[in-house]
Design a protein around this nucleic acid. Sequence first.
DNA 1: TTCCGTTTTTACCATATGTTAAGTGGAAGC
DNA 2: GCTTCCACTTAACATATGGTAAAAACGGAA
Lengths: 219, 219
Amino acid sequence: MSSTNVQNLIEVSTSKDLLIEIISSIFVSMTNRLIAFLQQYRFFSADEQQLIKDSFEPRSYKEGGQLFKGGNICRELFFVCNGVLRIMVTNQKGAELTHFFLKEDMFCTILHSFNNEVPATESIQAACDADVLAISKSKLLALYKQVPGLKELLDQIMQNRLLDKIQIRNAYLGADSETRYKLFMQQQPDIVLRVPLKDIASYLGITPQSLSRIRKSIK
Amino acid sequence: MSSTNVQNLIEVSTSKDLLIEIISSIFVSMTNRLIAFLQQYRFFSADEQQLIKDSFEPRSYKEGGQLFKGGNICRELFFVCNGVLRIMVTNQKGAELTHFFLKEDMFCTILHSFNNEVPATESIQAACDADVLAISKSKLLALYKQVPGLKELLDQIMQNRLLDKIQIRNAYLGADSETRYKLFMQQQPDIVLRVPLKDIASYLGITPQSLSRIRKSIK
DNA sequence: TTCCGTTTTTACCATATGTTAAGTGGAAGC
DNA sequence: GCTTCCACTTAACATATGGTAAAAACGGAA
């Protein structure tokens, strides 16, 4: 369940200068990825691009690392450049439930908490090693003022993400475990290979044992 | 599973004049309900209110009646004034799955289809007798031009609805049938009393027999 | 009213999934 | 290199839920 991300590079590297160079080049590629993603929707001027790039901060997480902890107010928005995140809760019995996976080119936050500044029940974790760009709500609001139409674009992107989320979940309704797993592999084939089995099981609403059994019976 | 709605009144009434009077007064009360709902969020001038009222068309459905049929492009937005709607699909085996219930003061459409003008898989039905206000997409777009900020308001309302939808569904994850039913009664107590058991069962992802068994064991 | 179709209830059996427990393998740390 | 820990697998057993069938209750139509 490993992938090359910034944190791994840091551990491997020996020369400090080289390290700095690598990190800054990765940051550039991360922000470029964000810009490229946004430009799919509409044009941004060079000035606007620079404003956007300067507003985000790069972060790197190991598998299992926590981007946001439930119980607090989520005041950050993340953009996934590399890896997979998961939105999850821990229920009364101490079991983890994965609500959703997010991968490259997806924005991630606890929207309800972020919008209304109320505590969130969900947490955000790295489901595998992941690099993200982070922006605080205050910086985002400032950016909205500087880049006209950006808010509307992000709102639209978020709405589509919510609709996807609902559609994906609805497809599972009334399906048994094996069918849900097969659907998951169809809908999100790249996730299956990168995140731990237990996370997928908790996403599908079954025990790791059941998922293991299902995988065996499919082969 | 009955409620007093326009269609029932029509059948009871004898005098034509009285009927017309009743219907128009109900239409007034329906549009007033819409305006009252919108005014919760912000002020609308008398002119704006009239524009909004004139754009919607009242409709009345019996339990089981179909507001929109899956396979088509959903070009209408509904506002529920009385009763409960359900968004549902029929799966390959011919079984009905209820994705969601919507009640008074909720807007209802198949958003993905409505926005992108692609065929929807879901249908919209009346889960009990229901009165709604309907507006076509073209009329809505025209209304947006006449009432500044209305689009943004509806987008915001829609986003909150989607978030609610996701949150409600997420609460069911990892819970067994009985727990899901109890959650449903907590979250949507008014729906339980008004819609057929089979619809609730299909919403909870269980058979009517199982739900009947659960109800019995709870009592 | 009576009849008929639909919904709901009840019961019995089959089975998928959870629970518990034990064993395996690989990664991280000493 | 050894130990420890965790994730994953496998197995045996328990149980909740689905499937099927049939009866009962309900509601609408003649």
